[in-house]
Amino acid sequence: MLQIKNIYGRIAMTTLKGWPEYSHPDNLTMIRDSVDTGQPKGVCFGLLLLHIIRYMAIPVKMRQFFEMTGELSKFTGRLFVEGVKPRWEFAELLRQCYMIGNKSLGLIGLTGFIMGLVLTMQLRPSLVEYGVESQLPAMVGIAIVREIGPVITALIFAGKIGSSIGAELGSMKVTEQIDAMEVSGTNPFKYLVVSRVVASTLMLPVLVVLSDGISLIGAYIGVNIRSVTSFHLFFRQVLDNLAFGDVLPAFIKTFLFGFAVGIIGCYKGYYSSKGTEGVGRAANSAVVISSIMIFIIDLIVVQVTDIMGVN
């Protein structure tokens, strides 16, 4: 039996006494690791609560969700700690920026162009019906810059980059390449995770700006399918109707989207379970969770900027 010296550890042990899992060595080791190695009191209470939640009759899926959220928070915390500590992997960061940014450009550009074109063609009939067809460039511009551009680009980015990071790190984990870096004392977290998360955080805003620009060109072509508007007039109408409150929140949230895609892809890959099935699952869940996170972040940012009066 492991000896728990810390009072909070003893409370945790006593509380667990009523559950059959009490004697399970994994529990004892977990308590010993977290409580008896000088963790703050808050962590000990948190551990106690976690154990209570863990063994209460709550649905397995919900328990897994809480566990994943906790693990992901720890992973993110480590990212910030490792991110500020030297030695920085600048060469790998630049390589990742190239891989993530440059290699996504074609796909982002193509989808952006189609998005602008289709949006314009879909909006036109409604505006014609109300007799405000002349407002089409302004409406399309605001819709693209404020919402559709960042969100659609981020979703495509999640599909391409999130899955690729998840699969790459997952296969490195399965083939013990991450363990090989670990045992040579070279800190794979810094090399693999920090560089990818920073690169995706920096590259997505750039891609969104480019995508917005290409979308507006698509929109300009869309406008000119049924009527004739000069390039100058179109862009003047778009820019005149865009305010600081339209651009800033949209730009800020792209950093958060990029961060979410990077961290979730890395987390899923870094901790993917053994086997090829695990790699596929890591890539798939990286995309699914990133996509959900993009909508959640979007909702929060819109609410916050609305409260702050930036909108």
């Binding site: 083939t175 390449q177 363990d179 004392g185």
Partner: peptide, 18 residues
């Protein structure tokens, strides 16, 4: 990490960075 620089590990799968 410093200790690991003094101890090497040869993996069964080789674990070369592909």
């Amino acid at each position: 990490d410093k200790m690991r620089a003094r101890v090497a590990f040869l993996f069964q799968s080789n674990a070369l960075y592909d």
